[in-house]
Design a protein around this nucleic acid. Structure first.
Length: 440
RNA sequence: GUGGGCGUAGCUCAGUUGGUUAGAGCGCCAGGUUGUGGUCCUGGAGGUCGGGGGUUCGAGACCCCUCGCUCACCCCA
């Protein structure tokens, strides 16, 4: 790599490398164009459903996550970036998007229903692999206030519609319910008792730890745990009446909107805060084990945990990196870089390039130019690379006669020369579909 | 946190049982083209062979350590 930095002999052993931290990546042009497009699509979709952009700090007091999500969760307990700042306060880099939105709700007490969307980086200190990074980016929505099952339907179908809009076809939606304060404890106890009876049949990891969080055993992928829990009691059979009615309404709503899903009795999401509806989107096009491209659910107790009034809420987070991987795998959502309208080639070393690009941009065209007074050939190569549709040439002849030559780079057509005063009008005519300057 | 694979030009990669000045394609720069890119031809620049230590007369190749990338477990977007 580019070592570059010179360290005095006997000084610090390893010069600071000019590279991103492990598991973190730069997104450079033109790849970043797909990011822009994905985010723009999302903003448009959820914006039209009444959600407003909400920007929260990357850093929160660690307590927001410790209390909101729970120290028991893997992400908060083992993977969160936590540190003491210069004031001695315990801070954390956001590991997920929901808790900060709930915190903002508590802090600003907006009038419910409060519908927020966000695009934000998330940080988790884990070992990177395909589709898993220490910094990744999530698109999400959170809706706080209503406990109405129709809101669950809206939120789930928004994510569904978003994936469909990108052209992703191999997306699976799994749906489940985690109950509420009334029925969850009873079910967890029931499941715990069931597991205790056959603890010796569980995989080694859960043989010792199944009592800590019985729900997690359902999610275990080992054949031992799968077999041992094959006829474990199902949460959906033990929901209280209110939760059962809620879930039934969610299902009928999704059915009515044509959103296809499968019930997954093992769907146990990683954060402690979930209640009632939970869901997960995965891409069957991704060969990797990291095929989850989005997930979410209801969290009716979190706002209260953070010190706010009892307020139901539901939302989801979608991973941009994984969505892009899924798009690659399916050949979906191709994004072409937006071409420039014009590129100015000026070999006179004068002010033509400066003035022409400024005039074009003022007139609403996209325009670029070469710098450092390079050769005609070099400037044309730069123009070609830029993808510009037209080149405006100013050489000694044009400079002497007060004209500019227009040459099409991407379409057929001949080069024309026009007076400087007419350049903007000529470009305007030329960039009209199928048009050519001075065409009869 | 654990385990496997891999680190040679900007990119993708060759590099024979360790043996002189480390190669190719693409990209970049210049010229062929006395003004004009995308094709073609010629030439050029660009590498402390990830870093450190060791073995050897001699290491890009072998050994150790380290850093990083990658895949997987765990967990998750």
């Amino acid at each position: 790599m580019t070592a570059g930095s010179s360290s005095a002999p006997g000084q610090s052993p390893a010069p600071a490398p000019a590279r991103t931290p492990k598991g973190m990546h730069d997104v450079l042009w033109p790849e970043s164009a797909r990011w822009e497009a994905v985010v723009a699509r999302f903003a448009d979709l959820v914006g039209s459903a009444g959600y407003g952009l909400t920007v929260t700090p990357i850093l929160e007091h660690a307590g927001v996550f410790l209390r909101g999500i729970g120290e028991g969760s893997e992400v908060v307990g083992k993977e969160m970036y936590v540190f003491e700042d210069r004031d001695g306060q315990l801070m954390a880099l956001r590991p997920e998007g929901t808790a900060p939105i709930a915190r903002a709700f508590v802090q600003h007490h907006p009038v419910p229903p409060w519908k927020a969307w966000y695009v934000a980086p998330s940080f988790r200190h884990e070992n990177p692999q395909q589709g898993r990074y220490r910094q990744h980016h999530q698109l999400g929505v959170e809706a706080l206030g209503p406990s109405d099952a129709d809101l669950d339907v809206e939120v789930v179908s928004l994510a569904h519609d978003f994936f469909a809009g990108l052209g992703l076809r191999e997306v699976t939606l799994k749906l489940h319910s985690m109950g509420d304060g009334v029925c969850k404890p009873g079910y967890v106890a029931l499941l715990g008792a069931f597991l205790a009876e056959r603890a010796d049949q569980l995989c080694p990891a859960h043989r010792a730890r199944h009592l800590e969080n019985p729900l997690r055993v359902l999610d275990c992928k080992t054949s031992e745990c799968r077999a041992a829990t094959a006829d474990a009691p199902r949460f959906l059979d033990h929901l209280c009446d209110a939760c059962a009615a809620h879930f039934a309404r969610v299902r009928s709503g999704l059915d009515a909107l044509g959103v296809v899903y499968t019930i997954d009795h093992r769907l146990v999401r990683g954060f402690d805060y979930y209640t009632r509806t939970t869901f997960e989107f995965s891409s069957d096009a991704l060969g990797s084990a990291q095929n989850g491209i989005g997930g979410g659910g209801r969290y009716d107790g979190m706002v209260e945990l953070l010190g706010g009034p009892p307020t139901p809420g539901i939302g989801f987070g979608l991973g941009i990196e994984r969505i892009l991987l899924a798009c690659d795998a399916e050949g979906a959502f191709p994004v072409d870089p937006t071409p420039l309208d014009a590129f100015v080639v000026d070999t006179t070393g004068g002010t033509a390039a400066r003035d022409l690009t400024a005039a074009l941009r003022d007139a609403g065209f996209s325009a670029d130019r070469a710098f450092d007074d390079r050769s005609m050939k070099a400037q044309f190569k730069a123009a070609d690379r830029s993808g510009a549709r037209w080149v405006l040439v100013v050489g000694p002849d044009e400079a002497a006669s007060g004209t500019v030559s227009l040459r099409p780079l991407r379409d057929a057509g001949d080069q024309r020369t026009v007076p400087v005063a007419d350049v903007v009008a000529a470009v305007r005519a030329a960039t009209r579909p199928g048009a050519f300057p001075d065409a009869p």
